[in-house]
Amino acid sequence: MGLDFSVVPAFAGALLLGMVWTIAITVSAAVLSFFGGIVFAVIALYSPALIRYPFRLFAWLFMGTPLLLQLFLIYFGLIQIGVDLPAFVAGVIGLGLHFAVYNSDIIQSGILAVDKGQYEGARTLGLSRMQTLRKIIVPQAVRAVIPPIGNNMIALLKDSALVSVIGVAELTLTSQMAISRTFRPFEFYVTAAACYYVINLGLEAGLRRIERRIQLAR
């Protein structure tokens, strides 16, 4: 049986919608993972031991177990304790927290790499620890680690396909539905791959823009 891509256009609308959901979940989870990563990094570095150690356990759970399992737990498991999240929300939280933990590691190293003179410069002006952290240290740390965080965001885009298993009708699930109707896996998986590639290009272009914009301010 030969390949026949002419079956694809009939599903163009559905695939486009799937792409939109993939972008929506990626952007939402990326934003959560970015700000969550900053908060986690500050907790990991500066909070009292009573918070820090339980937090490390929590971070280890997110890094040391499969993302797929975490998604199942958040979507199916939490219902048992009365938390019934929509699939999209469960997906954003799962992806967002998972990558927040990875981002936190990177941001921590960024914070530790900020020159000690920056801290002293701010403190001698009269800024408090917290003001110094917020206005001086974290902004510089984040600027310095934009490239590795960008890599994480590209990984996040690819891992967003996992939320298909909890029923978010994003690109991968949409493709599978098209396949079940047409029995044309090759055509639709290749099409989906091309779509991911296009989103990826957009993401990389966005990251490059951010890097260019902060180039002077380093």
């Binding site: 003179g117 002293e120 410069g121 701010a122 902004p139 902060i214 380093r218």
Partner: peptide
């Protein structure tokens, strides 16, 4: 300071 300690991310 000897090494200025200006904030590089601010103009």
């Amino acid at each position: 300071f000897q090494h200025f300690n200006l904030f590089p991310h601010l103009n």
